[in-house]
């Protein structure tokens, strides 16, 4: 996926270190989605995806940084959100993106479910951490 972080407006960022920060991250993304003019259904899908990814980052990556910004591309406007952690990384990304696969006590829908809820989804993972980037476009 394109590097929207480099092209869009300066992102708003938030450090996620506990579960109430996940709530704050949800609110940050919701406010931005509303400001960007996403429809209610699109807002709901994006905020839900952000909640899944924020919690994933907390549980598997030991927390990290959420950055969100409004982005434009070819006349479309959308919301870009990035989740960056310094955790141990994901050994097998394909496996982690499979429905129902879980390394913890979740339902295994975090990554795969979040990917279905957004228009663009990118993930990079290595021994130094994991970064997930998503975009939801307005109509």
């Amino acid at each position: 996926m394109r590097d929207y972080a480099a092209t869009g407006a300066p992102p708003e960022s938030l450090s996620v270190g506990n579960s109430s920060d996940v709530v704050m991250a949800r609110q940050l993304v919701r406010t931005l989605a509303q400001r960007t003019g996403l429809s209610l259904v699109h807002q709901t899908k994006l905020v839900t995806a952000a909640s899944e990814l924020g919690r994933n980052m907390l549980i598997h990556g030991g927390g990290g940084i959420v950055r969100a910004a409004t982005v434009d591309d070819a006349g479309r406007t959308g919301v870009y959100v990035e989740f960056e952690d310094r955790g141990p990384g994901i050994a097998d990304i394909e496996l982690a993106l499979t429905d129902g696969w879980t390394s913890g006590d979740g339902m295994g829908l975090g990554l795969s479910g979040a990917r279905r809820l957004v228009d663009e989804f990118g993930i990079e993972s290595g021994p130094d951490g994991t970064t997930v980037r998503i975009v939801k476009w307005g109509r």
Binding site: T44, G113, A114, R116
Partner: peptide, 11 residues
């Protein structure tokens, strides 16, 4: 919107 999201999420 929550119902639509849950179904797409796979729940």
């Amino acid at each position: 919107a929550v119902a639509m999201t849950l179904v797409e999420l796979g729940l």
